[in-house]
Amino acid sequence: MPNPARIHPLADRLSAGNGVILSPVESRERISLRADPTTAKALGTAIGLNLPTKPTGVTTKGNKSAFWIGPDEWLLIGPDNGSMAKALEKVGRQVYSATDISHRNTAITVSGAKAVEALNSGCPRDLSLDAFPVKSCSRTVLGKAEIILWRTGNQEFHVECWRSFSDYVWKFLVDATRSA
């Protein structure tokens, strides 16, 4: 039997103009990792990343990144091949929870000269480079949706949200772009 088609929640969308480019982020492996902070080092070693230990912290190696979400919570994002889940399975004798959320979340790349203005239309965070430098992340809101915001460049952001909120987040950003 042929494998069924995989349909991205934001398939075929693109928006560009007025200083903002929006594009859906392709499928990724995503894991919600919960563990006592003392376990962080061993878990990080397993997946080949140092887990960040401070608020807004992000660590990246190659195409894998770990995001500090809370004192005992990390979001892991990596290539869509299940390798992080497999690596974590091998961490025996450690107490933690790794839950696959690859399909729960999706993401949008927001870039361009007016990216900050578009995001600040609905996100109350201070997005100046001083307050939110490149390689920062934050669980915050955009309009009425919860998002995880990751600054990947001076004018580039990765906006992570739940799949059923992605249509709203996309349309919000399009509307915000229009008047950014």
């Binding site: 919960r34 929870s97 839950t99 959320i101 729960r104």
Partner: peptide
Amino acid sequence: KVWLTSTSEQ
């Protein structure tokens, strides 16, 4: 030692 993760949309 127990953690909760929403998987409603997974």
